[in-house]
Each structure stands twice: as structure tokens, then as C-alpha cells.
Design a protein around this nucleic acid. Structure first.
Lengths: 240, 240
DNA sequence: TCAAAAGTGTTCGTCCTACACCCATGA
DNA sequence: TCATGGGTGTAGGACGAACACTTTTGA
């Protein structure tokens, strides 16, 4: 590669980033969408994103576009993760656009506001994220699948939680993303048995549902991998 | 994104693909390297790759560049998998180059030959793949890590095997990539207990080491995921 | 008859699952 | 005192690790 200053080096490629920003609101998975203010797909909803600037990496561009288009700047606890790059010819009607897609996880969900090239920005329930512009439906589905898979063998789930959280909240994160119910006692033991997954906040306790016993409060630990993994139930596991 | 035909759409970005092609030769992991025939890094070794053409996706470009630079065309059993995209400014001394990296797995290893912009192409033992051009050392390490991780919960390992193989060969694939020894009886049971991982070739049997009992022959099955996963031993599992 | 490699059996511990049960709080 | 959610205990089963043992081949 990069063998010369030949014609290929100057083909009109555009490089963009697209972000599938996920969060949990009222116990449901939400995704951050923007209404396009420009053609093509003007008025349609799409994932936030935009062109790379000459001096920035895709990760940097992702954070900048998020701030510009949705007002979510300096968001604490934002977890950015490269998903994959979509490069099929024809995915943009005008020209060759190669897009580096990111999955992003956010704990509490600040209200966004449109900006830059986005007419509006809004949290939309994942199930109601209707047909999106370009191939963004697929990017969003890929992001969901990736996040669900990473929940099994990484500590990624804490990225959906505020700095301090209860085990019940963490369990809700799993249940919402996986769409399955988990056994509370077992979930609890599993999490606590994994060193570095969570660490207790000494004296703290908090009421969660208004009623009930106050729950102990935890912080995200330093571990990133889960060994052994926390496998989601069912799938085609046993029914051979 | 793509809001307008503005200046960013015409920034001089080059888009390339890079391939970390892995195979097993004589029980050791090898990677396919090319000697660069052009500046920069002329005479240095690098991963094969090159510029995207205007009408092709990154996956298509990866296969084309592999054929052009190493002569490996129409390779049966080639498994291509997008690794991630490297976009840091300065990773190419001349200009902005965004590179979509792939990990590729190949069963038997045909001899490559240089071509296109590559002065030479060669299989190099993974451990001896000295300092490479650009950030290719990192890409190669990322590919190895990714492949090792995917061995745990996918059927990817069969991509290193010829169409028909024995369980002993499959086990060697795991042991080589992970760098650990596995218990043969347990490995055997685990693989056979996973429906769709491998399927027996009815009457076939083959001698492997010259001596010993002939081994039953298997083909790759239709499954892609491994449930439950086949975890590599040790790591920081138990020693809490 | 020995070495080497494939394949089978068995034991034992660990982890997962499932539930039953107790605790603390607000209404 | 009841509903609600947090937290503990425990019996049973499935799975994995370790290793002994048998089988089949070439030398």
C-alpha cells in the first residue's frame, strides 16, 4: 500500500463517522437520532455523524460531531467503541463515502438539541427508531448486537450506569439490552464474584423504587474483561 | 453527515485496506508480508494492502490487493474479517491515509510471489515478523488478539484447516494460536458436543503423524457461534 | 513389542440454576 | 401489616479439569 503518489491517492473519497449512541431511559433502550437538515434525506432521521477533519482521527471526529449535532459535549462516562467501517459503493447517493461507525454508550441521558447540520436531535426508543437514512438501520442493528454480545464477556454494562449505582440497576441494564429476565440472587453473586467488576461504596445505600430495602451502592471497577463470562440465557444453547 | 457538498467532502483523504493474513505452517503461526518496492519504507516489510478503487468496497479491495501483491488469487477457504479502521493523523508520512484493516485466515499456505507494488511476498513466522512499516506492527498484534478471542466463542478455528481435517489438527490450531496446551479428550468432547461445529466424513480416516491410530476425518459444520464457549485456560481466571 | 497417536471412561470439583427464605423500608 | 425491592442460603444438576485406560497403526 501507499506505494506512490498515483491517481488512486486522489480519488474523491469522503470519510465520515456515524454514531449509534445508546442509553437507557425509563427502563427502555433509546438511541440518539438527528433530523437531517440537508439533502439528501432532508427531513429524515439518521444517526449523528459527519465528515472527518484533516487533522483528527475517527475517534476525535466522533466526539466532535456528537457535540456539534446534538449538544452532548464533554459528556462524562461516554464510552466510544469502533463498530466497523461501511464502505459499499452506493451507500450515499451522491458520492463515495466511507463511514467509520461507532457504538457509544451513555449513562444518564441529557436532553440533546439540534445543531450544526442537524435540524433536531432526540432520544428515540430503540424499537421505534423507524426507517433511517442511508444504511443507518443496519448500523444501528449492528451496534445493538455488538453491545449485547460484549455484555457477556466484558464489563461494558457499567457504561450505561451513572458513577454510582445499585446491583438492581445494573441488572436492569442487562435485562433491557438482552431483552430477557435474569435471576436476581444469581446475578448478584456472579457480579460480586468477578474481581474488579464493581466495587462497593463503603457507607452508601439508596432507595430505588420508592419502597423496599435501601440498596448498597457500587462503582464500576477496574476490570474490563469478565472471566468466566456472563452468558445470556436461552439462545440455541441446549435445544440441539 | 453528508449534509452538503462543502469543502470537507473534498479534503484529500486516501482510503486503503491492510491485511493481516495468518496461516499455520509446520505448527507455527505465520503472517503474509510483502517487501515494499516504493517509498516510503522502501525495502521494509509490511502487511499487504493498497488503495480502494472508486467502485469497490473495502472487502473487495482486500481480496484484489491480496491477489495483486501476493499472487494469492481465488484462494479457497479464505476467511476475511474486518478488524478495525486506523485513522490517526500521521500514520502515513505523506498524507492523510485512513486504512481499513482486515484479519484474514487461510488453511493451507500456498507460496506467494511479489507483484504489483510489492517487491517480494513471503510467509514469515509470527514471532519473527520484525518491525514493520507504518503502524503495521500494531495492526498485526490486534489481528492476533482478535483471532485468539474469537476462537473462544466462534467456529473460526476451522478457517485454518483444510476442507477435511482431524480433531488433532483442529486442536493444534487452537494450541498454536493460543500458545497453550489443551487436554485432548476434553477438547474432543467439547467440539463434538457443539452441534454444527464439525461434521464427520463418513468412512474416512487418515494417518497424521506417520505412526498411531488413523484419525477420523471431519468437515467444518454450519454453525458459526459456540455455545457455550471454549474458554482458553489460565488468564486471570481464578487467581483473584 | 514398543512408541505414538486416536479415542473412551471415570472421578471429582466447581459453577450455574432454581427456588425458598429473611431483611428493611414506605404506604 | 402489607407490598416492594434488597439480600442470603441451599439442594441438584450440568459442565469442565484431570488422568487412567484401551485401540490401532508403523517401525
Amino acid at each position: 500500500m501507499l506505494q506512490g503518489y498515483d491517481k488512486y491517492a486522489h480519488e474523491p473519497f469522503a470519510v465520515t463517522v456515524d454514531l449509534a449512541v445508546l442509553t437507557l431511559r425509563e427502563g427502555a433502550l433509546h438511541v440518539l437520532l438527528v433530523e437531517r437538515g440537508q439533502e439528501p434525506y432532508r427531513g429524515h432521521w439518521a444517526l449523528p455523524g459527519g465528515f472527518l477533519h484533516p487533522d483528527e482521527s475517527a475517534e476525535t471526529a466522533a466526539r466532535r460531531e456528537l457535540a456539534e449535532e446534538t449538544g452532548l459535549a464533554d459528556v462524562s462516562g461516554l464510552h466510544l467503541e469502533q463498530l466497523r467501517t461501511y464502505s459499499e459503493p452506493g451507500r450515499d447517493p451522491r458520492m463515495r463515502v466511507v463511514s467509520v461507525a461507532f457504538a457509544a454508550l451513555l449513562p444518564d441521558a441529557p436532553e440533546p438539541h439540534g445543531g450544526g447540520d442537524a435540524a433536531e436531535a432526540r432520544w428515540v426508543p430503540y424499537d421505534k427508531a423507524g426507517p433511517l437514512a442511508f444504511d443507518h438501520d443496519r448500523i444501528l442493528a449492528d451496534a445493538h448486537e455488538r453491545v449485547g454480545a460484549k455484555f457477556e464477556y466484558t464489563c461494558l454494562a457499567t457504561a450505561f450506569c451513572p458513577p454510582e449505582f445499585t446491583l438492581g440497576e445494573l441488572q436492569q441494564v442487562y435485562e433491557t439490552v438482552w431483552g430477557t429476565a435474569l435471576d436476581r440472587p444469581n446475578f448478584r453473586r456472579k457480579v460480586l464474584a468477578t474481581p474488579g467488576f464493581v466495587e462497593a461504596v463503603p457507607g452508601a445505600a439508596r432507595l430505588t423504587g420508592g419502597r423496599g430495602k435501601p440498596a448498597a451502592v457500587y462503582r464500576a471497577g477496574t476490570a474490563t474483561a469478565l472471566h468466566p463470562p456472563l452468558l445470556r440465557p436461552s439462545r440455541e444453547g441446549r435445544p440441539a
